[in-house]
Write a protein that binds this DNA or RNA. Structure first.
Lengths: 132, 132
DNA sequence: TTCAAATACTACTTCTTAGTGGTAATTAAA
DNA sequence: TTTAATTACCACTAAGAAGTAGTATTTGAA
């Protein structure tokens, strides 16, 4: 189980944008600051924009920014980049449920539930913020 | 976050072998029963054998079997197929720890701990067995 | 209105994972 | 000792993810 390169990039990018939400972030800046290949990064940004996770402003002095009103969870990010992170069955069995369990069903339940719940709770804008 | 095809195959294979530990399982049988491409399966089996996760018996009437004395956890299987499933930092930051946390550190702790603990506890031979 | 700096788009290359093909080596039964 | 069914090995192809290249489009300032 691994988070793809794209997912890791995505998480880094959004965390950076969140830390600098007062200004636009250009692809050039993001690429340099986060050490992500420029062209690959722009691809990811376009994807985010199309999925309305962020807003893009074109033309000179343009860039990207988070949408104030929008809540983005870690789960949303993973889902967009890698697909559903907490699939019901670890071995992809269709008929795997509480009544008819695959061999690994019980062992997978806790990690899976934790991933789903904790990542759905983890709003990008607040998850790095200390409780006070 | 996704379990690779190889990992899913591996989990299926070992669960099947565990359910039939009284006899040898040939690659042909495993391939047919579990619907895994034969040639790809034999590659995985060789890998398992080399890592001493299972035992292989060559020649006619040969096949594969679990080693009675050997404990195999889900964690072992994931590690062999996909690498460490519970990396310390979700975005691969080297300096990410309790003192200096990355943006996602706290959100990742519970799922990560659950994966590590519950998968290390999940012995192949007993994880599908009901408590009695 | 021109221009430079930015995003958007299309297509390609490279690398890794998944899957295939052929053959050698092994082994127990007949 | 022959044979057939098995694992082991080597090399290839196919598909998908990661990364690159070039160009079109957009846009605000000079």
């Amino acid at each position: 189980m691994v988070f793809s390169t794209t997912t890791q990039y995505a998480l880094k990018i959004l965390a950076y944008m969140n830390e600098h939400k007062e200004r636009l972030c250009s692809a050039k800046t993001l690429s340099e600051e986060l050490d992500i290949p420029y062209k690959y990064l722009t691809k990811i940004m376009t994807k985010f924009t199309k999925n309305e996770m962020i807003e893009s402003i074109q033309g000179r002095y343009g860039g990207f920014k988070l949408i104030d009103s929008k809540i983005i969870t870690i789960y949303d990010i993973l889902k967009l980049c890698d697909g559903d992170s907490a699939k019901a069955c670890i071995i992809g069995k269709i008929e795997c449920n509480e009544k008819k369990k695959c061999h690994y069903h019980d062992a997978w339940q806790k990690p899976r539930a934790s991933i789903k719940k904790d990542f759905l709770d983890a709003d990008l804008k607040s998850c790095g913020v200390k409780d006070s």
